[in-house]
């Protein structure tokens, strides 16, 4: 055992310098070459700074809503709800969300509400909603803002992110980008 202890300590220290020092600094250096300089993808709009990938809370009817969040879009302590699929409290919450949605969006067929609009995401910071989740809110936003529905449908289509190379993954709408574009319509 003894002959292994000293090398163990020295080898660990060398690894410490190599990985925590050299490797980390190389990655940090290369980060400065990226557009965001390693600070995460940023959107600057009217002098205000937003994180493109970090979802935001929208409670006003004049904006497209994000998904429900277990942490109320607190990006300093992200988390999911961790509710199981049969949990009665959870199912009650979902039912309430559906009712609230119907109150805010009169004239919508309940069967058209996609589940992503009434369920919380894994991190509570989901920046996206499904395309259907955006289109179903068009009627409300158009009414509140006094813009035509077809114009808004077009805006949703413009802000739809296609699957990677058109082939891999999901279609989705970044709520923040959509709402920024919406504010510009005025």
């Amino acid at each position: 055992m003894k002959e292994h202890i000293l090398p163990a300590i020295r080898l660990t220290l060398v690894c410490l310098v190599f990985f925590c020092g050299i490797y980390t600094l190389i990655v940090l250096g290369i980060a400065q070459l990226t557009n965001s300089k390693g600070k995460g993808e940023i959107i600057i709009e009217n002098g205000k700074k937003y994180y493109a990938n970090v979802g935001q809370k929208f409670t006003n009817d004049e904006y497209f809503r994000s998904r429900p969040s277990a942490v109320d879009y607190n990006a300093a302590g992200a988390a999911g709800s961790n509710k199981g699929p049969a949990n009665p409290d959870y199912l009650k919450t979902v039912r309430q969300r559906i009712d609230t949605f119907l109150i805010h969006n009169p004239g919508i067929d309940k069967a058209d509400i996609p589940s992503d609009l009434v369920t919380a995401s894994g991190a509570g910071l989901d920046p996206h909603i499904s395309v259907q989740g955006a289109s179903i809110q068009v009627k409300r936003v158009a009414h509140v803002r006094g813009i035509s529905e077809s114009q808004l449908q077009q805006l949703v289509a413009q802000n739809t992110e296609k699957p990677l190379l058109g082939l891999f993954g999901t279609e989705r709408v970044n709520v923040l980008r959509l709402n920024i574009a919406l504010d510009k319509l005025k």
């Binding site: 559906i98 309940k110 996609p114 992503d116 995401s121 989901d126 996206h128 999901t170």
Partner: peptide, 18 residues
């Protein structure tokens, strides 16, 4: 509950991954 689940069970999932 009568709503649609076009992208399945979404509780705890992110829209960008599906």
């Amino acid at each position: 509950m009568g709503i649609g689940q076009p992208s399945g069970n979404m509780e705890g999932k992110e829209v960008r991954f599906g």
